[in-house]
Nucleic acid binder design. Structure first.
Lengths: 250, 250
DNA sequence: AGAATAGTGTCTTTGAGACATTATTTC
DNA sequence: GAAATAATGTCTCAAAGACACTATTCT
């Protein structure tokens, strides 16, 4: 390639025809269950199947594309509400097997999004056919989205151990009990309340007290819990390791 | 899009013009130092700068593209030697900021490769300008490759803690001391020999004895060490955590 | 009153790490 | 012989987890 062709950029015949999309695994907790945002596909291929929200990358960064797709599918716009400001978005991994889309070569950069509590997608908008589904009921998705979802869940479960990710699922002020329910929902197993409580408070920078107390006690009784907000730690040290299960080790 | 246009695939005007490449962060240990494979760029942009090996994705999976690029740049071909069979390849993350390549929108899927000891790239081949560079001397790389390398190193350092990755840097039979030198090279700090030894042997499935003993003792004296091979564990439990440094926590 | 929950105390076991020690080998 | 290294032993401290217990609030 000489100087002239450099200035002109690549020649389209120099590289294979590929399209790049983003797909978003958006997770939230509703009624104590971990849920993922899915859309109903109206067109071929996989018409009638459910899929992860996503679309072509435009003139924007990949992160911006993911946040934009999430906003469009949930019916939220960056200017109408600051709800989206509190959504945690991170890249998951990229899926590009030839044939994963029957129409053409599509390379999809998958993203994970964690939200405290997004409203139900508004009917009448672009998001008319989007809704939250408990992750254990999200099966038979279009394309390779079953795999993407599985990878996203594994990543989320891992990150709960080493990072304060769980605070992304609760409000700005929360009780230790609420935090524990996040862990229980994502990991799919109950945690010992007393040990969890002491453990969370012992990790520097995980949570800090607001000085406030919850307005009322638990639904079925119990004292009013103290309120906390997220601390400034980026990694939990020591980590909150999952209950050891030998079958996860090999 | 109706059924006819589905059968015809996407129309090129429906999606932005993008090219997809793979870039490979290939790591090995030479003379006790962690090294990365770099190529000298002969053309604009960044002519004369060093860069990570990479190229356009062809009609292949992304993993295959990464392994193919690595083979081409090192001058090894999958059929000439089984050396490449022992290379660990895994996806790192994807870089796609507009403007990261001045010529056009390029989305690059970065890969990590771990090799025990690849030969010096052969002159006269495509790999004529490729060579191994200690990672702390790999600076001012082309494009955003400084960032990609930094991300790759961070990933490698993390994976040493929780996985048997270190065994990918040594031969099929190795001593505990060799394994410790891998950790020291990647983490950039010495480890206590006695504690490391006991720790490695205490992790189920990390290493298993071959029953053999090294042909001779250390270079400057000492008994002949026992030989081990990689075990069947996929995760280390308990993990080999890095020496705690407070500045890594927040 | 009865039940559920928040928060704390205590004990045991495991593991990390500092340090010491012995045996073996090279120069 | 001197120095380095492999491998193991010992001790201390931190942390995980099981369990118990008290105080508070809801129905």
């Amino acid at each position: 390639m000489d100087e002239a062709s450099f200035l002109a950029g690549y020649n389209p015949r120099d590289y294979p025809a590929v399209a790049v999309t983003v797909d978003v695994v958006a997770l939230t907790i509703r009624d104590g269950r971990l849920c993922v945002l899915l859309v109903e596909r109206g067109q071929q291929p996989f018409a009638g199947h459910r899929a992860l929200p996503g679309g072509f990358v435009r003139d924007e960064t990949l992160d911006e594309a993911a946040l934009r797709e999430l906003a469009e599918e949930t019916g939220l716009t960056p200017d109408t509400g600051d709800v989206l400001d509190r959504v945690h978005v991170e890249q998951l991994r990229t899926y590009g097997d030839p044939g994963r889309d029957p129409r053409m070569r599509i390379v999809s950069v998958a993203y994970l999004a964690f939200a405290p509590h997004l409203p139900e997608p508004v009917a009448g908008s672009d998001a008319a056919r989007a809704y939250w589904v408990p992750v254990d009921e999200a099966k038979d998705l279009a394309f390779d989205h079953d795999q993407i979802l599985a990878d996203g869940l594994e990543r989320a479960r891992d990150k709960l151990e080493y990072t304060p990710l769980a605070t992304a699922f609760v409000g700005t002020a929360f009780t230790i009990s609420e935090l524990r329910q996040v862990y229980a929902a994502v990991w799919g197993e109950e945690l010992h309340a007393g040990n969890f409580h002491r453990k969370v408070l012992s990790v520097p920078g995980f949570v800090e007290s607001t000085g406030e107390t919850a307005a009322r006690g638990g639904e079925r009784g119990g004292p009013r819990a103290r309120l906390y907000r997220a601390g400034d730690a980026r990694l939990l040290h020591p980590a909150l390791l999952r209950p050891t299960r030998e079958d996860r080790i090999r």
